[in-house]
Design a binder for these strands. Sequence first.
DNA 1: GTAAGTTTTGCAATATCCTGCAATATTTAT
DNA 2: ATAAATATTGCAGGATATTGCAAAACTTAC
Lengths: 249, 249
Amino acid sequence: MLKEERFRLILDRLVHDQKVYLAGLSTLLNVSEDTIRRDIKELAEQGLLKSVRGGAVPHSPGPHRFKDRILHDTEQKQIIAKKALEFLKDDQVVIFDGGTSAVLVAQLLPKDVHLTVVTNSFPVATLLEEHEHVEVLFAGGRLLKNSFVTIGNDTIQFLKKFRADICLLGICSIHAELGVTSPNFEESEVKRVMIESSKEIIALATVEKLETAEAYYVCPTDRLSVIITDQLAEDEAFKVYTELGIKMA
Amino acid sequence: MLKEERFRLILDRLVHDQKVYLAGLSTLLNVSEDTIRRDIKELAEQGLLKSVRGGAVPHSPGPHRFKDRILHDTEQKQIIAKKALEFLKDDQVVIFDGGTSAVLVAQLLPKDVHLTVVTNSFPVATLLEEHEHVEVLFAGGRLLKNSFVTIGNDTIQFLKKFRADICLLGICSIHAELGVTSPNFEESEVKRVMIESSKEIIALATVEKLETAEAYYVCPTDRLSVIITDQLAEDEAFKVYTELGIKMA
DNA sequence: GTAAGTTTTGCAATATCCTGCAATATTTAT
DNA sequence: ATAAATATTGCAGGATATTGCAAAACTTAC
Protein backbone atom coordinates (compact mmCIF):
# COMPACT_ATOMS: atom_id res chain seq x y z
CA MET A 1 0.00 0.00 0.00
CA LEU A 2 1.29 3.42 -0.94
CA LYS A 3 1.85 6.03 1.67
CA GLU A 4 -0.42 8.27 -0.35
CA GLU A 5 -3.27 5.80 -0.05
CA ARG A 6 -3.01 6.02 3.69
CA PHE A 7 -2.89 9.79 3.46
CA ARG A 8 -6.05 9.89 1.44
CA LEU A 9 -7.87 7.54 3.74
CA ILE A 10 -6.81 9.47 6.79
CA LEU A 11 -7.99 12.74 5.29
CA ASP A 12 -11.25 11.20 4.11
CA ARG A 13 -12.05 9.86 7.54
CA LEU A 14 -11.12 13.19 8.99
CA VAL A 15 -13.57 15.03 6.75
CA HIS A 16 -16.22 12.48 7.60
CA ASP A 17 -15.75 12.08 11.33
CA GLN A 18 -13.98 15.31 12.23
CA LYS A 19 -11.42 13.20 14.07
CA VAL A 20 -9.22 10.10 13.72
CA TYR A 21 -7.52 7.89 16.25
CA LEU A 22 -4.07 6.36 15.92
CA ALA A 23 -5.26 2.97 17.11
CA GLY A 24 -8.22 2.84 14.75
CA LEU A 25 -6.18 3.78 11.72
CA SER A 26 -3.47 1.36 12.71
CA THR A 27 -5.76 -1.66 12.63
CA LEU A 28 -7.69 -0.38 9.65
CA LEU A 29 -4.59 0.08 7.53
CA ASN A 30 -2.55 -2.79 8.97
CA VAL A 31 0.46 -0.73 9.89
CA SER A 32 1.98 0.15 13.23
CA GLU A 33 0.82 3.12 15.20
CA ASP A 34 4.23 4.64 14.67
CA THR A 35 3.65 4.74 10.97
CA ILE A 36 0.28 6.41 11.40
CA ARG A 37 1.87 8.83 13.79
CA ARG A 38 4.48 9.70 11.20
CA ASP A 39 1.83 10.05 8.51
CA ILE A 40 -0.14 12.44 10.65
CA LYS A 41 2.97 14.40 11.41
CA GLU A 42 3.69 14.77 7.73
CA LEU A 43 0.14 15.78 6.90
CA ALA A 44 0.24 18.26 9.73
CA GLU A 45 3.39 19.81 8.27
CA GLN A 46 1.47 20.34 5.07
CA GLY A 47 -1.25 22.00 7.07
CA LEU A 48 -3.86 19.45 6.06
CA LEU A 49 -4.78 18.47 9.58
CA LYS A 50 -3.83 19.11 13.14
CA SER A 51 -2.00 16.46 15.09
CA VAL A 52 -3.33 15.93 18.60
CA ARG A 53 -2.60 13.43 21.30
CA GLY A 54 -3.85 10.01 20.19
CA GLY A 55 -4.96 11.09 16.74
CA ALA A 56 -5.74 14.11 14.61
CA VAL A 57 -8.45 16.69 13.94
CA PRO A 58 -9.17 18.87 10.92
CA HIS A 59 -7.18 22.02 10.70
CA SER A 60 -8.11 24.91 8.47
CA PRO A 61 -7.69 28.58 9.14
CA GLY A 62 -10.77 30.67 9.55
CA PRO A 63 -13.85 30.09 11.63
CA HIS A 64 -13.62 26.32 11.71
CA ARG A 65 -10.65 26.44 13.98
CA PHE A 66 -12.87 27.47 16.84
CA LYS A 67 -15.43 24.74 16.42
CA ASP A 68 -13.70 22.45 18.88
CA ARG A 69 -13.94 24.72 21.81
CA ILE A 70 -17.40 25.90 20.93
CA LEU A 71 -18.53 22.30 20.87
CA HIS A 72 -18.13 21.76 24.56
CA ASP A 73 -20.19 24.77 25.34
CA THR A 74 -23.26 23.91 27.27
CA GLU A 75 -26.95 24.23 26.61
CA GLN A 76 -26.97 26.86 29.31
CA LYS A 77 -24.87 29.16 27.25
CA GLN A 78 -26.96 28.51 24.17
CA ILE A 79 -30.01 29.65 26.07
CA ILE A 80 -28.22 32.75 27.26
CA ALA A 81 -26.95 33.57 23.81
CA LYS A 82 -30.41 33.31 22.28
CA LYS A 83 -31.81 35.67 24.87
CA ALA A 84 -29.00 38.11 24.28
CA LEU A 85 -29.87 38.34 20.59
CA GLU A 86 -33.13 40.07 21.47
CA PHE A 87 -31.25 43.04 22.85
CA LEU A 88 -29.37 43.72 19.64
CA LYS A 89 -31.12 46.19 17.32
CA ASP A 90 -30.16 47.21 13.82
CA ASP A 91 -27.55 49.95 13.40
CA GLN A 92 -26.22 49.76 16.92
CA VAL A 93 -22.58 49.80 17.90
CA VAL A 94 -21.92 46.73 20.02
CA ILE A 95 -18.83 45.75 21.97
CA PHE A 96 -18.33 41.99 22.14
CA ASP A 97 -16.37 40.67 25.06
CA GLY A 98 -13.85 37.87 24.42
CA GLY A 99 -15.47 35.15 26.50
CA THR A 100 -17.14 32.04 25.20
CA SER A 101 -20.61 33.39 25.90
CA ALA A 102 -20.12 36.29 23.56
CA VAL A 103 -18.71 33.96 20.92
CA LEU A 104 -21.92 31.98 21.03
CA VAL A 105 -23.93 35.12 20.46
CA ALA A 106 -21.81 35.88 17.42
CA GLN A 107 -22.41 32.37 16.18
CA LEU A 108 -26.17 32.67 16.46
CA LEU A 109 -26.40 36.17 15.07
CA PRO A 110 -28.71 36.27 12.03
CA LYS A 111 -27.07 37.14 8.73
CA ASP A 112 -29.30 40.12 7.99
CA VAL A 113 -28.70 42.40 10.97
CA HIS A 114 -26.88 45.69 10.46
CA LEU A 115 -24.34 46.25 13.23
CA THR A 116 -20.99 47.74 14.02
CA VAL A 117 -19.16 45.31 16.24
CA VAL A 118 -16.10 46.17 18.28
CA THR A 119 -14.21 43.23 19.77
CA ASN A 120 -10.89 41.85 20.87
CA SER A 121 -11.94 38.25 20.24
CA PHE A 122 -10.65 36.33 17.25
CA PRO A 123 -13.55 33.87 17.23
CA VAL A 124 -16.07 36.70 17.28
CA ALA A 125 -14.30 38.51 14.47
CA THR A 126 -13.95 35.48 12.22
CA LEU A 127 -17.52 34.40 12.83
CA LEU A 128 -18.84 37.82 11.89
CA GLU A 129 -16.54 38.18 8.92
CA GLU A 130 -19.12 36.69 6.63
CA HIS A 131 -21.99 38.83 7.86
CA GLU A 132 -22.40 41.23 5.00
CA HIS A 133 -23.95 44.01 7.05
CA VAL A 134 -21.74 43.77 10.10
CA GLU A 135 -18.73 46.01 10.25
CA VAL A 136 -16.09 44.54 12.49
CA LEU A 137 -13.60 46.77 14.26
CA PHE A 138 -10.92 44.72 15.88
CA ALA A 139 -8.89 45.85 18.86
CA GLY A 140 -5.22 45.10 18.29
CA GLY A 141 -2.76 44.23 21.00
CA ARG A 142 -0.88 41.31 22.45
CA LEU A 143 -2.41 37.91 21.78
CA LEU A 144 -3.20 36.15 25.05
CA LYS A 145 -2.20 32.48 24.84
CA ASN A 146 -4.97 29.91 25.08
CA SER A 147 -7.80 32.36 24.87
CA PHE A 148 -7.88 33.92 21.41
CA VAL A 149 -8.24 37.48 22.62
CA THR A 150 -5.92 40.45 22.57
CA ILE A 151 -4.98 42.30 25.74
CA GLY A 152 -2.69 45.04 26.89
CA ASN A 153 -2.38 48.75 26.48
CA ASP A 154 -2.96 48.78 22.73
CA THR A 155 -6.21 46.93 23.16
CA ILE A 156 -7.32 49.34 25.84
CA GLN A 157 -6.42 52.44 23.87
CA PHE A 158 -8.36 51.13 20.89
CA LEU A 159 -11.46 50.41 22.95
CA LYS A 160 -11.35 53.84 24.56
CA LYS A 161 -12.13 55.43 21.23
CA PHE A 162 -15.69 54.17 21.24
CA ARG A 163 -19.00 55.12 22.74
CA ALA A 164 -20.96 51.96 22.06
CA ASP A 165 -24.68 51.41 22.58
CA ILE A 166 -24.26 48.01 24.13
CA CYS A 167 -21.56 45.86 25.60
CA LEU A 168 -22.02 42.08 25.72
CA LEU A 169 -20.03 41.11 28.75
CA GLY A 170 -19.20 37.54 29.63
CA ILE A 171 -19.22 37.22 33.40
CA CYS A 172 -16.89 35.07 35.46
CA SER A 173 -18.23 36.11 38.81
CA ILE A 174 -20.80 38.55 40.04
CA HIS A 175 -21.81 39.47 43.56
CA ALA A 176 -24.41 42.02 44.61
CA GLU A 177 -22.05 43.80 46.97
CA LEU A 178 -18.57 42.97 45.58
CA GLY A 179 -19.57 43.70 42.01
CA VAL A 180 -18.29 42.00 38.87
CA THR A 181 -14.89 40.32 39.22
CA SER A 182 -12.53 38.31 37.02
CA PRO A 183 -9.71 35.84 37.72
CA ASN A 184 -7.29 37.47 35.28
CA PHE A 185 -5.88 40.92 35.82
CA GLU A 186 -5.30 41.92 32.23
CA GLU A 187 -8.67 40.65 31.13
CA SER A 188 -10.27 42.57 33.92
CA GLU A 189 -8.64 45.76 32.72
CA VAL A 190 -9.93 45.22 29.21
CA LYS A 191 -13.43 44.50 30.48
CA ARG A 192 -13.34 47.67 32.52
CA VAL A 193 -12.58 49.77 29.46
CA MET A 194 -15.27 48.02 27.47
CA ILE A 195 -17.73 49.00 30.14
CA GLU A 196 -16.52 52.60 30.21
CA SER A 197 -17.01 52.77 26.46
CA SER A 198 -20.61 51.53 26.47
CA LYS A 199 -23.94 53.01 27.46
CA GLU A 200 -25.67 49.75 28.37
CA ILE A 201 -24.05 46.61 29.72
CA ILE A 202 -25.59 43.22 29.06
CA ALA A 203 -24.06 40.65 31.38
CA LEU A 204 -24.03 37.02 30.28
CA ALA A 205 -23.79 34.65 33.23
CA THR A 206 -24.83 31.11 33.99
CA VAL A 207 -26.59 30.86 37.32
CA GLU A 208 -23.65 29.32 39.15
CA LYS A 209 -21.68 32.52 38.52
CA LEU A 210 -24.12 34.54 40.60
CA GLU A 211 -23.00 35.53 44.08
CA THR A 212 -19.40 34.42 43.60
CA ALA A 213 -16.25 36.53 43.46
CA GLU A 214 -12.76 36.47 41.97
CA ALA A 215 -9.57 38.39 42.59
CA TYR A 216 -9.83 41.32 40.19
CA TYR A 217 -12.50 43.96 40.29
CA VAL A 218 -14.23 44.99 37.09
CA CYS A 219 -17.22 47.19 37.93
CA PRO A 220 -19.98 47.71 40.48
CA THR A 221 -23.03 45.54 40.05
CA ASP A 222 -25.41 48.43 39.44
CA ARG A 223 -23.45 49.46 36.38
CA LEU A 224 -25.06 46.51 34.59
CA SER A 225 -28.26 47.10 32.68
CA VAL A 226 -29.33 43.52 32.23
CA ILE A 227 -28.18 40.16 33.55
CA ILE A 228 -29.01 37.28 31.27
CA THR A 229 -28.99 33.83 32.84
CA ASP A 230 -30.11 30.38 31.79
CA GLN A 231 -32.66 30.00 34.58
CA LEU A 232 -35.23 32.47 35.75
CA ALA A 233 -36.13 31.29 39.22
CA GLU A 234 -37.67 33.83 41.50
CA ASP A 235 -35.28 33.17 44.31
CA GLU A 236 -33.54 35.44 46.74
CA ALA A 237 -30.50 36.17 44.63
CA PHE A 238 -32.60 37.56 41.85
CA LYS A 239 -34.45 39.97 44.06
CA VAL A 240 -31.17 41.50 45.16
CA TYR A 241 -30.26 42.39 41.62
CA THR A 242 -33.74 43.51 40.67
CA GLU A 243 -33.74 45.88 43.60
CA LEU A 244 -30.56 47.42 42.22
CA GLY A 245 -32.53 48.33 39.10
CA ILE A 246 -31.08 45.58 36.99
CA LYS A 247 -33.30 43.76 34.55
CA MET A 248 -33.09 39.97 34.76
CA ALA A 249 -33.59 37.90 31.63
CA MET B 1 5.23 -2.70 -27.03
CA LEU B 2 5.48 1.01 -27.58
CA LYS B 3 6.29 3.32 -24.73
CA GLU B 4 3.12 5.22 -25.52
CA GLU B 5 1.00 2.13 -25.03
CA ARG B 6 2.40 1.76 -21.57
CA PHE B 7 1.77 5.42 -20.91
CA ARG B 8 -1.86 5.09 -21.91
CA LEU B 9 -2.35 2.03 -19.78
CA ILE B 10 -0.67 3.59 -16.78
CA LEU B 11 -2.85 6.67 -17.01
CA ASP B 12 -5.97 4.58 -17.54
CA ARG B 13 -5.34 2.53 -14.47
CA LEU B 14 -4.58 5.67 -12.57
CA VAL B 15 -7.92 7.21 -13.45
CA HIS B 16 -9.66 3.96 -12.60
CA ASP B 17 -7.91 3.07 -9.35
CA GLN B 18 -6.57 6.44 -8.22
CA LYS B 19 -3.20 4.71 -7.78
CA VAL B 20 -0.73 2.40 -9.51
CA TYR B 21 2.07 0.24 -8.15
CA LEU B 22 5.43 -0.26 -9.79
CA ALA B 23 5.32 -4.00 -9.11
CA GLY B 24 1.84 -4.47 -10.52
CA LEU B 25 2.56 -2.58 -13.71
CA SER B 26 5.85 -4.40 -14.11
CA THR B 27 4.25 -7.85 -14.22
CA LEU B 28 1.24 -6.61 -16.17
CA LEU B 29 3.33 -5.06 -18.91
CA ASN B 30 6.21 -7.53 -18.83
CA VAL B 31 8.89 -4.92 -18.34
CA SER B 32 11.24 -4.27 -15.48
CA GLU B 33 10.29 -2.04 -12.62
CA ASP B 34 12.99 0.34 -13.70
CA THR B 35 11.22 0.90 -16.98
CA ILE B 36 7.95 1.60 -15.24
CA ARG B 37 9.78 3.90 -12.90
CA ARG B 38 11.19 5.80 -15.84
CA ASP B 39 7.79 5.95 -17.49
CA ILE B 40 6.26 7.39 -14.37
CA LYS B 41 9.04 9.89 -14.05
CA GLU B 42 8.43 11.04 -17.60
CA LEU B 43 4.68 11.32 -17.09
CA ALA B 44 5.28 13.22 -13.90
CA GLU B 45 7.43 15.72 -15.74
CA GLN B 46 4.52 16.30 -18.07
CA GLY B 47 2.35 16.89 -15.05
CA LEU B 48 0.04 13.99 -15.86
CA LEU B 49 0.52 12.24 -12.55
CA LYS B 50 2.46 12.45 -9.36
CA SER B 51 5.30 10.05 -8.78
CA VAL B 52 5.44 8.62 -5.28
CA ARG B 53 7.47 5.93 -3.61
CA GLY B 54 6.34 2.54 -4.92
CA GLY B 55 4.04 3.86 -7.61
CA ALA B 56 2.08 6.93 -8.62
CA VAL B 57 -1.12 8.80 -7.82
CA PRO B 58 -3.18 11.28 -9.86
CA HIS B 59 -1.69 14.72 -9.96
CA SER B 60 -4.77 16.59 -8.77
CA PRO B 61 -6.67 13.97 -6.84
CA GLY B 62 -10.39 13.99 -7.47
CA PRO B 63 -12.28 13.95 -4.20
CA HIS B 64 -9.76 16.02 -2.29
CA ARG B 65 -11.90 18.96 -1.38
CA PHE B 66 -9.77 19.16 1.69
CA LYS B 67 -7.49 21.72 0.21
CA ASP B 68 -8.59 25.08 1.49
CA ARG B 69 -10.43 27.36 -0.81
CA ILE B 70 -9.11 30.23 1.24
CA LEU B 71 -5.56 29.24 0.59
CA HIS B 72 -4.71 28.46 -2.97
CA ASP B 73 -2.59 25.87 -1.42
CA THR B 74 -0.50 25.11 -4.45
CA GLU B 75 2.76 23.29 -4.35
CA GLN B 76 4.36 26.51 -5.52
CA LYS B 77 3.46 28.34 -2.38
CA GLN B 78 4.51 25.43 -0.22
CA ILE B 79 7.92 25.59 -1.81
CA ILE B 80 8.12 29.31 -1.24
CA ALA B 81 6.99 29.03 2.35
CA LYS B 82 9.60 26.40 3.13
CA LYS B 83 12.33 28.55 1.70
CA ALA B 84 11.10 31.52 3.68
CA LEU B 85 11.47 29.62 6.94
CA GLU B 86 15.22 29.60 6.49
CA PHE B 87 15.32 33.36 6.82
CA LEU B 88 13.68 33.41 10.23
CA LYS B 89 16.10 33.29 13.13
CA ASP B 90 15.37 33.00 16.82
CA ASP B 91 14.55 36.15 18.74
CA GLN B 92 13.75 38.27 15.71
CA VAL B 93 10.81 40.60 15.35
CA VAL B 94 8.95 39.62 12.21
CA ILE B 95 6.07 41.34 10.46
CA PHE B 96 3.75 38.92 8.69
CA ASP B 97 1.80 40.25 5.77
CA GLY B 98 -1.84 39.19 5.45
CA GLY B 99 -1.57 37.30 2.17
CA THR B 100 -1.95 33.57 1.70
CA SER B 101 1.80 33.10 1.23
CA ALA B 102 2.54 34.43 4.67
CA VAL B 103 -0.20 32.26 6.15
CA LEU B 104 1.51 29.21 4.76
CA VAL B 105 4.76 30.24 6.39
CA ALA B 106 2.95 30.52 9.69
CA GLN B 107 1.49 27.09 9.11
CA LEU B 108 4.88 25.52 8.53
CA LEU B 109 6.69 27.36 11.30
CA PRO B 110 8.31 24.89 13.72
CA LYS B 111 6.97 24.91 17.24
CA ASP B 112 10.28 25.62 18.93
CA VAL B 113 11.31 28.95 17.40
CA HIS B 114 11.37 32.08 19.53
CA LEU B 115 9.87 35.02 17.68
CA THR B 116 7.91 38.17 18.08
CA VAL B 117 5.37 38.31 15.30
CA VAL B 118 3.48 41.42 14.26
CA THR B 119 0.57 40.87 11.90
CA ASN B 120 -2.82 42.05 10.74
CA SER B 121 -3.84 38.58 9.57
CA PHE B 122 -6.32 36.51 11.56
CA PRO B 123 -5.15 33.18 10.15
CA VAL B 124 -1.53 34.01 10.98
CA ALA B 125 -2.47 35.02 14.52
CA THR B 126 -4.60 31.99 15.23
CA LEU B 127 -2.03 29.63 13.74
CA LEU B 128 0.73 31.06 15.89
CA GLU B 129 -1.43 31.20 18.99
CA GLU B 130 -0.28 27.76 20.00
CA HIS B 131 3.40 28.39 19.47
CA GLU B 132 4.63 28.68 22.99
CA HIS B 133 7.62 30.83 22.21
CA VAL B 134 6.01 33.14 19.69
CA GLU B 135 4.61 36.40 20.97
CA VAL B 136 1.90 37.66 18.67
CA LEU B 137 1.15 41.38 18.42
CA PHE B 138 -1.97 41.94 16.42
CA ALA B 139 -2.72 45.12 14.54
CA GLY B 140 -6.28 46.20 15.19
CA GLY B 141 -8.48 48.01 12.72
CA ARG B 142 -11.36 47.48 10.38
CA LEU B 143 -11.88 43.89 9.28
CA LEU B 144 -11.69 43.62 5.51
CA LYS B 145 -14.43 41.33 4.21
CA ASN B 146 -13.38 38.12 2.50
CA SER B 147 -9.75 38.37 3.41
CA PHE B 148 -9.35 37.97 7.16
CA VAL B 149 -7.07 40.95 7.60
CA THR B 150 -7.52 44.32 9.26
CA ILE B 151 -6.95 47.55 7.37
CA GLY B 152 -7.35 51.26 7.84
CA ASN B 153 -5.79 53.97 9.92
CA ASP B 154 -5.76 52.02 13.17
CA THR B 155 -3.90 49.18 11.55
CA ILE B 156 -1.38 51.58 10.08
CA GLN B 157 -0.81 53.47 13.32
CA PHE B 158 -0.22 50.18 15.13
CA LEU B 159 2.31 48.98 12.60
CA LYS B 160 4.17 52.27 12.67
CA LYS B 161 5.24 51.57 16.24
CA PHE B 162 7.62 48.83 15.20
CA ARG B 163 11.12 48.49 13.86
CA ALA B 164 11.08 44.85 12.83
CA ASP B 165 14.02 42.79 11.65
CA ILE B 166 12.14 41.18 8.81
CA CYS B 167 8.92 41.63 6.91
CA LEU B 168 7.42 38.67 5.07
CA LEU B 169 5.62 40.33 2.22
CA GLY B 170 3.21 38.52 -0.06
CA ILE B 171 3.56 39.94 -3.53
CA CYS B 172 0.75 40.49 -6.01
CA SER B 173 2.86 42.01 -8.71
CA ILE B 174 6.45 43.02 -9.07
CA HIS B 175 8.22 44.75 -11.91
CA ALA B 176 11.87 45.76 -12.05
CA GLU B 177 11.07 49.33 -13.06
CA LEU B 178 7.54 49.87 -11.76
CA GLY B 179 8.28 48.30 -8.39
CA VAL B 180 5.91 46.33 -6.18
CA THR B 181 2.22 46.98 -6.79
CA SER B 182 -1.10 45.76 -5.42
CA PRO B 183 -4.67 45.67 -6.78
CA ASN B 184 -6.23 47.01 -3.56
CA PHE B 185 -5.61 50.52 -2.33
CA GLU B 186 -6.06 49.96 1.36
CA GLU B 187 -3.98 46.82 1.36
CA SER B 188 -1.26 48.65 -0.49
CA GLU B 189 -1.22 51.30 2.21
CA VAL B 190 -0.83 48.69 4.91
CA LYS B 191 1.94 46.94 3.01
CA ARG B 192 3.75 50.23 2.62
CA VAL B 193 3.79 50.81 6.36
CA MET B 194 4.92 47.26 7.01
CA ILE B 195 7.87 47.91 4.75
CA GLU B 196 8.69 51.19 6.43
CA SER B 197 8.72 49.44 9.76
CA SER B 198 11.13 46.68 8.76
CA LYS B 199 14.83 46.51 8.10
CA GLU B 200 14.76 43.62 5.65
CA ILE B 201 11.97 42.75 3.26
CA ILE B 202 11.48 39.17 2.15
CA ALA B 203 9.16 39.09 -0.85
CA LEU B 204 7.13 35.94 -1.47
CA ALA B 205 6.10 35.65 -5.10
CA THR B 206 5.30 32.84 -7.47
CA VAL B 207 7.12 33.22 -10.77
CA GLU B 208 4.06 34.37 -12.69
CA LYS B 209 3.93 37.46 -10.49
CA LEU B 210 7.30 38.62 -11.75
CA GLU B 211 7.31 41.44 -14.26
CA THR B 212 3.63 42.28 -13.86
CA ALA B 213 2.02 45.37 -12.41
CA GLU B 214 -1.19 46.47 -10.66
CA ALA B 215 -2.84 49.79 -9.96
CA TYR B 216 -1.47 50.75 -6.55
CA TYR B 217 2.17 51.38 -5.82
CA VAL B 218 3.75 49.80 -2.76
CA CYS B 219 7.52 50.28 -2.93
CA PRO B 220 10.47 50.37 -5.31
CA THR B 221 11.90 47.04 -6.28
CA ASP B 222 15.30 47.68 -4.75
CA ARG B 223 13.76 48.09 -1.33
CA LEU B 224 13.42 44.30 -1.26
CA SER B 225 16.22 42.27 0.30
CA VAL B 226 15.21 38.87 -1.03
CA ILE B 227 12.69 37.60 -3.53
CA ILE B 228 11.63 34.03 -2.89
CA THR B 229 10.07 32.20 -5.82
CA ASP B 230 9.10 28.64 -6.57
CA GLN B 231 11.45 28.29 -9.52
CA LEU B 232 15.04 29.33 -9.83
CA ALA B 233 15.59 29.53 -13.56
CA GLU B 234 18.50 31.61 -14.71
CA ASP B 235 16.48 33.58 -17.20
CA GLU B 236 16.45 37.25 -18.08
CA ALA B 237 13.98 38.36 -15.46
CA PHE B 238 16.16 37.05 -12.67
CA LYS B 239 19.23 38.87 -13.82
CA VAL B 240 17.37 42.16 -13.67
CA TYR B 241 16.62 41.70 -10.00
CA THR B 242 20.03 40.36 -9.13
CA GLU B 243 21.61 43.42 -10.70
CA LEU B 244 19.52 45.56 -8.36
CA GLY B 245 21.27 43.85 -5.46
CA ILE B 246 18.33 41.62 -4.59
CA LYS B 247 19.00 38.08 -3.52
CA MET B 248 16.91 35.49 -5.34
CA ALA B 249 15.88 32.30 -3.55
C1' DG C 1 2.44 11.83 44.10
C1' DT C 2 1.63 7.29 40.87
C1' DA C 3 0.18 4.76 36.96
C1' DA C 4 -1.30 4.38 32.36
C1' DG C 5 -1.01 5.91 28.08
C1' DT C 6 1.45 8.69 24.34
C1' DT C 7 5.18 10.64 21.97
C1' DT C 8 10.03 10.85 20.78
C1' DT C 9 14.30 8.97 19.57
C1' DG C 10 17.57 5.82 17.85
C1' DC C 11 18.19 1.72 15.46
C1' DA C 12 18.08 -2.20 12.32
C1' DA C 13 15.63 -4.58 8.52
C1' DT C 14 13.63 -3.97 4.45
C1' DA C 15 12.03 -1.72 0.31
C1' DT C 16 12.58 1.60 -3.07
C1' DC C 17 15.19 4.80 -5.83
C1' DC C 18 19.02 6.62 -8.56
C1' DT C 19 23.25 6.12 -11.32
C1' DG C 20 26.14 4.24 -14.60
C1' DC C 21 26.65 0.75 -17.86
C1' DA C 22 26.05 -2.60 -21.43
C1' DA C 23 22.90 -4.77 -24.71
C1' DT C 24 19.41 -4.11 -27.87
C1' DA C 25 16.23 -1.53 -30.67
C1' DT C 26 15.19 2.61 -33.33
C1' DT C 27 16.13 6.63 -35.96
C1' DT C 28 18.96 9.56 -38.94
C1' DA C 29 22.39 10.79 -42.33
C1' DT C 30 24.70 9.54 -46.06
C1' DA D 1 21.21 0.00 -47.57
C1' DT D 2 24.58 0.89 -44.08
C1' DA D 3 26.91 3.10 -40.47
C1' DA D 4 26.57 6.27 -36.92
C1' DA D 5 23.87 8.44 -33.60
C1' DT D 6 20.21 8.12 -30.41
C1' DA D 7 16.76 5.92 -27.36
C1' DT D 8 15.19 2.28 -24.71
C1' DT D 9 15.68 -1.37 -21.61
C1' DG D 10 17.37 -4.35 -17.82
C1' DC D 11 20.69 -4.95 -14.34
C1' DA D 12 24.00 -4.17 -10.51
C1' DG D 13 25.51 -1.27 -6.82
C1' DG D 14 25.27 2.28 -3.49
C1' DA D 15 22.25 5.93 -1.66
C1' DT D 16 17.94 7.00 0.36
C1' DA D 17 13.30 6.25 2.45
C1' DT D 18 10.10 3.65 5.05
C1' DT D 19 8.77 0.81 8.63
C1' DG D 20 8.40 -1.53 13.16
C1' DC D 21 10.46 -2.10 17.50
C1' DA D 22 12.14 -0.79 22.09
C1' DA D 23 13.80 2.33 25.52
C1' DA D 24 13.42 6.85 27.33
C1' DA D 25 10.91 11.18 27.92
C1' DC D 26 6.88 13.19 28.33
C1' DT D 27 1.45 13.95 29.42
C1' DT D 28 -2.61 13.09 31.39
C1' DA D 29 -5.80 11.56 34.69
C1' DC D 30 -6.59 10.08 39.04
